[in-house]
Amino acid sequence: MSDVDPLPAATVVPNGSAPLLAEGFDHGQVTAIRHTVASHAQAAGLTGTRLDDFVLAVNELITNAVRHGGGQGWLRLWRTDGTLYCRVSDTGAGIDSDRLGDRRRPAPEVAGGWGLWLARELSDEMLVRSGPEGTTVQISASLGGPEPDPLVG
């Protein structure tokens, strides 16, 4: 898993796969987008905790785009070869490279800074491209993967 691997600059879905969802959003659409992502992810084959984790990770990314990335964003959701992908892009000022490289869990008393950490922890892979022109974060989840053991931490 890499955190700062380059992503293609285009916001189209890679590999010519048809998107399950391709939407722009702003603050007023975060809840609706989250529900739509949940429906599509479930239809694509995610279930149980894996579905909940993926949807929470996407929610963190779209919330970050609205809060820190210029007030709006673009989401692409697609399925390729047994994997579900979500890419969220914004036009904010970018994320500081020190912040991107910091993989530590935020302190419990800290109100912010949880979004990228949660997205990384709750997905199989997270890739980021960030700069002054905006940020794109892509996460993935293997379909049909085993449910995590709730007793293993």
Rank of each mutant, 00 (worst) to 15 (best):
G92K: 05
P14W: 14
G101S: 13
D90Q: 03
A10D: 04
D98Y: 14
G28T: 09
S123W: 04
S2Y: 11
L77D: 01
S89Y: 02
R76P: 00
G144S: 14
T80R: 14
Q138W: 06
A44M: 04
F25H: 05
A22P: 04
C86Y: 01
P8G: 12
L46K: 03
A44K: 01
T36F: 01
A44C: 07
D96C: 12
V128A: 05
E60F: 05
G71D: 09
R129E: 09
P19R: 10
S89G: 03
V110C: 11
L56W: 01
S130T: 11
S17F: 07
A107E: 05
A44S: 10
R79D: 10
G82F: 11
H40C: 09
L46G: 02
Y85E: 09
I33K: 01
P108T: 05
G45W: 08
G82A: 12
L127H: 13
L127W: 07
P14Q: 13
I33F: 03
R34L: 06
V88K: 00
G134Y: 05
S140L: 07
E60A: 10
T91Q: 15
G153V: 13
A38Y: 01
L118E: 06
E133R: 14
V110T: 15
G71Q: 07
T49M: 10
A43W: 03
Q42C: 11
G45D: 03
Q138M: 15
A41R: 01
G115E: 02
L77A: 07
Q72C: 11
Q138R: 10
R129I: 07
D90S: 10
S39C: 06
D5K: 11
G69Y: 01
S140E: 03
G16I: 12
I95D: 02
G24H: 11
D96N: 13
W74C: 08
G28I: 06
V88P: 05
L84S: 07
D90T: 10
D90P: 02
G134I: 12
A119L: 04
N59R: 09
A57I: 02
S17T: 11
A93E: 07
D98G: 14
W117V: 14
D5N: 08
A38C: 06
Q138I: 10
D52R: 00
P8W: 06
P132N: 09
A111S: 11
P14C: 13
I139H: 01
T136K: 11
T80Q: 15
N15R: 15
G24S: 12
V137L: 09
H40Q: 12
S97P: 08
T63M: 07
G73N: 01
R120V: 13
E125G: 09
G71F: 11
E133I: 13
G24D: 14
R103Q: 14
G70A: 05
L20Q: 03
G70C: 06
T31Q: 04
L84F: 12
D149M: 09
H68P: 01
T47W: 03
G69H: 02
V12E: 12
G134D: 03
I33A: 03
Q42G: 15
H35E: 12
D102L: 06
A43V: 05
D102S: 05
L84V: 06
T11F: 03
M126L: 15
A65I: 08
V13D: 07
V152N: 08
L20Y: 04
G71C: 11
R87E: 07
D5H: 09
